[in-house]
Amino acid sequence: MNNLFQYVPGKSVIHRMNPITKLLITIVICVAAFLSDRLLFLAGLLAVDLLIGVIGGVANRTWQIFRGLLKIAIFLFLLQVLLTRKGTPVFWIITDQGLLTAGKVVLRLVVVCMPLALMLAVTRISDLTNALVQVLHVPYQYAFTLSTAIRFIPQFMEEMSGIMEAQTARGVAFDKARGLKKFSMILPLCAPLLISSVRRTDQTAAAAEVRGFRLRTRQSGYKRYPFTGVDFGAFVFCGALLAAAIIL
């Protein structure tokens, strides 16, 4: 869990792609998932997600993310199936339409979430923010906010597990509790966590400031992000995917 959002170094085609291209692929997959209403097409998109993970050389991570999403997906699926009243009953209170809608909702969720998490695995955050600033002319302040937020995820996790460890050691039974019980035990600990996070954010801002945060211009990034053949190939793929989503 701790490293679910962390960058995995590599030299795959996906790694070498322009960060903007990767962002585009992510967005296109999301858009396609909402444009199409066909179960088969959604399943196809899922295959595309998994394929990206494999080509990117992060098959393990892809599987991890998939497994994580599956838990939420199953929960949502059951909820949807049990709540849908339309259609003909298949057995008990479950209807054929319920199954179909639930399948689509869940598939859409997985299809949309996977590329976002995968992108973080194959793209350095600094490359993403620098490319956003250089290529798309996004103001640096916004790009910085994004990168800091992502940088905070592992820090937050680390702090949380540190707090839980300390509480366990003094007798709070985190090591015995499961599910909702555990969640209700974590809740009161969130106050100190938030206090320290806010304090920390302010200090991070100060630290960035004394290292020339305001001096940064669009051209400051050390690396440049030109589009290459791989990127144009990806553009064609994105176009095809969108077209398919509209037609199918």
């Binding site: 350095r124 940088r151 920390r200 960035a208 400031e209 004394v210 020339g212 400051s220 050390y222």
Partner: peptide
């Protein structure tokens, strides 16, 4: 800040980047 560099007491909040290389680059770029 062009004249004075500062290392903070709380390391965690000083580090901005997720990678070592990027952290060193940050100020140099700016």
């Amino acid at each position: 800040s062009r004249m004075v560099g500062m290392v903070f007491q709380d390391v965690e909040s000083q580090i901005i980047s997720p990678l070592v290389e990027d952290e060193i680059l940050y100020g140099l770029e700016n």
